[in-house]
């Protein structure tokens, strides 16, 4: 049975977008996304991002655990996005923390740095775990963020990603219902 998307497609998508806009404008801010009813194991937050931003113009890459038949059918109905097997072809990549294809994602080109992937990365939580210090546009001085379940490779990759600026991959860290954005401009360091 195909499960539903947003209860109110127009206004829930608008609310989700405003949350994502706020998150992207103020890196490190925790936002919650409107509920929807995706097939497991796709987290609600990932589904809300898919329903809000993805359509036939956005190739998607799904990490192994998400790439179930039910998720594929749900996506085909709700977003009609093409699924790609090579992460380099994706405009949105949905990954579980440990198996994210960090360096394989498209960073855009010097002339079109917006043609880069957005990585949606599932972590365990934002209230405890590894403290990270964030600085950059959108942050008044600096902010400290705790993320539970950040993969070990993440910080090294962020430093490489920052060096590519203005090219680079933008990140949305998600839990089941919440999200934090780390755009390419954000400097992420261990405290």
């Amino acid at each position: 049975m195909l499960t539903s998307g947003f209860a109110d497609p127009i206004h829930d998508a608008q609310a989700a977008f405003r949350a994502l806009l706020e998150a992207m404008a103020r890196p490190g801010t925790i936002v919650s996304l409107p509920p929807c009813d995706p097939p497991p194991p796709l987290p609600q937050a990932a589904a809300a991002i898919l329903l809000t931003l993805c359509d036939r113009d956005t190739p998607l890459w799904l990490d192994g655990p998400f790439a179930t038949r039910a998720v594929g059918e749900w996506l085909r109905f709700h977003t009609a996005s093409p699924l790609v097997s090579n992460p380099a072809d994706a405009s949105f990549a949905f990954a579980c923390a440990d198996s994210a294809p960090f360096d394989a994602l498209a960073p855009g080109t010097d002339e079109a740095p917006e043609r880069s992937a957005t990585l949606v990365l599932l972590v365990e939580g934002f209230r405890s775990g590894r403290p990270l210090r964030l600085a950059g546009p959108g942050i008044e001085s600096e902010t400290v963020l705790s993320v539970d379940g950040v993969p070990n490779a993440f910080l090294g990759w962020r430093a490489r990603n920052l060096a590519l600026y203005p090219r680079g991959v933008d990140v949305l860290l998600i839990t089941r219902t919440e999200a934090i954005a780390l755009p390419r401009t954000t400097v992420v360091q261990e405290v």
Binding site: A13, Q14, F17, L20, L21, M24, A25, T52, L53, C54, D55, D57, T58, P113, E114, S116, T118, P137, G138, P166, G168, D170, P183, R184, T185
Partner: peptide
């Protein structure tokens, strides 16, 4: 709207571009 929203998020990620 989705297309504009994607452009706005990329715009915020690359200030001034």
């Amino acid at each position: 709207k989705r297309e504009i929203r994607r452009a706005l998020l990329k715009g915020l990620a690359i200030p001034g571009h």
